[in-house]
Write a protein that binds this DNA or RNA. Structure first.
Lengths: 333, 333
DNA sequence: GAGAAAAAAGTAAACGTTTCAATTTTAAAG
DNA sequence: CTTTAAAATTGAAACGTTTACTTTTTTCTC
């Protein structure tokens, strides 16, 4: 053990009881100014720091929320984290983060560790297909909120962004620009977000009498540098327009278009996602889909505290909407 | 309390002793297959999950490292975190992250909470000027590593990147391009990194007989959108070239240059930082400084484990070097 | 089968706090 | 000075584990 001095040492050093020291530290009962002074002096003299593990173990409350997210290097998630942290710290809570890199294993392990006594509640941007896996390792009644992604069999508060309309309209916009071979790059296929967006693509295509060929749908893994191969495949299939279903993949594709500008036989229109002003596109997309990530983060932060304080209140599901912005000009070719 | 069932319940349910249950869970002693089965069944039946708080409190070991960083939405730090996480998880450790947003208060609070029993060691990208503030809240002998920034009076392992040469050479390169009024945008002035870089700027200017005017040095706060005001001030001062001492501020400046292209009376050359391929510059800088962030993260991760396992080994200070890349073409004006 | 060695299982004492119930001290009232 | 009420302080029992030490059961040998 590292922290050698404990509350008993302080009690001995200042000549009072353990209980009194505890009350001085936590301001949980009146203590005469004289003893308070004595105790505080001893604490300083000994360099005593309360063991928060023992404390949390005893009280069951830690004023800490855990956040499990799939990709810390995606601005989308960074923004969400910052918003959550903002709100929580204004309520006297702290936030600790675990980055799963879209790995089920890391997610489950993280949930296990944090939920078993380290935090008061969890906000989870899950990479899992089925929430059951989480429920298998989660203590009964533990407060959690699902954010952005809702795995199957999810029975907890959750907030998601509906992208159906945006993707649908994005495809329609491309069709109106006279594209017929419209490719689509999906994220991880197990995710609810991916599935919804793909449905929108399929619906829009068929509604306009366009054939959806297998090869027009290529999947990336929702992370950076995973979109290049799918994208070049789509070009080989003769696609003249592409929808990219996630911001980092879109960023990647636009950079590629920029680097290779002039090397394409005809112009290629791209619509992708973008997170705020910090996701920068080198080439000009014909449309961008932006999501209310801050709003989502804020709601999740508020809701986890609500859930902690009112465990019996009814489950809430919030669905926000994304926005499609179309641009007049052409994509750089 | 949330997790109702404890090890005692499992013991009762399966008709064995608490000790046996513990040994089954931890595989810390031979248990006959029959009892092992019984216990495992009970665990499943009751949905028992060991309270890691109680466990960590008892054993003093958690296999968790904490990482305290100033800006999660900066790729520089995101990359570092990912590298640290990679290495640690290959060693059976987990990483939890706290984002301080360059706030001393949050940093100290985070250090306090995590070091008091929650993690086995800390990797700190400090926003503080003086390490003494940390030592005031840190248990004696607690393993920590300073990363990227070395506050004053730092007596622990640390890894930093020397940017002196890069910044010096950046200024020289601008001078060779016939610039005389060269502006400089600093980060938070209290940081060691900021100070070293600024010294390099000053040295390079005076070494070439150029006056360093107060007004040529403007400070941002090392975060996004904090560079615009300093930058426009420099332009007002008549600067024709600018060095931006951090990647997100550089990104911001380059976007501004791009948006306002054509509105400048003469061309403006910029040299800034860039983190890997994901920091995208809309306008073309004449030079970029890149830092070995992954390498730094890896070292920090390795060193924290070394420090934990060999507390008495001598303190290490590692200094890596950044790289300046110059481009042939002109900056977009 | 008896005795000894090996294997399996159990008992109970920690770990560092918080907090309830009990006690002592101080202050107020008669 | 008592008596009583209020304030301050203390003692000790939790909290859920791990683990050193003990005891019981099984297995082996002759």
């Amino acid at each position: 053990m590292i922290n050698k001095t404990n509350i008993r040492d302080v009690a001995n050093h200042s000549g009072v009881s353990i209980a009194t020291v505890s009350h001085v530290i936590n301001k949980t009962r009146n203590v005469s100014p004289a003893t308070r002074k004595k105790v505080e002096d001893s604490i300083k003299a000994l360099g005593y720091i309360p063991n928060s593990m023992a404390r949390g173990f005893k009280t069951g409350s830690r004023k800490i929320i855990g956040c499990i997210i799939p990709d810390i290097s995606n601005y989308f998630w960074a923004v969400i984290i910052e918003r959550i942290e903002d709100f929580l710290s204004s309520c006297g809570y702290r936030l600790i983060i675990i980055n799963t890199k879209e790995t089920a294993q890391k997610e489950l392990d993280g949930i296990k560790v944090l939920s078993a006594g380290m935090v008061d509640g969890l906000i989870i941007g899950s990479t899992l297909e089925d929430a059951q896996e989480i429920y298998d390792v989660l203590p009964q009644g533990f407060p959690i909120i699902f954010i952005d992604r809702t795995p199957k069999h999810c029975f907890h508060d959750n907030v998601t962004i509906s992208n159906y309309a945006s993707v649908y309209n994005a495809v329609v916009a491309l069709i109106q620009r006279r594209h017929e071979k419209i490719g689509y790059i999906t994220g991880l296929t197990r995710l609810s977000t991916t599935q919804e967006r793909l449905t929108a693509y399929n619906d829009a295509m068929t509604a306009h009498g366009l054939a959806v060929e297998e090869s027009f749908i290529q999947s990336g893994d929702s992370m950076y540098t995973s979109a290049l191969l799918p994208f070049t495949r789509l070009l080989q299939q003769g696609c003249s327009a592409v929808v990219v279903s996630n911001n980092v993949m879109a960023s990647d594709v636009m950079s590629y278009l920029f680097r290779e500008r002039g090397n394409f036989p005809s112009k290629i229109d791209v619509i992708g996602y973008q997170e705020g002003v910090r996701d920068v596109c080198l080439a000009q997309p014909v449309g961008l889909i932006s999501q209310p990530s801050e709003q989502m983060g804020l709601w999740a932060a508020q809701q986890i505290l609500t859930r902690i304080n009112y465990p019996e209140s009814s489950i809430q599901s919030l669905i926000l909407s994304s926005t499609l912005t179309l641009f007049e000009g052409d994509s750089t070719i």
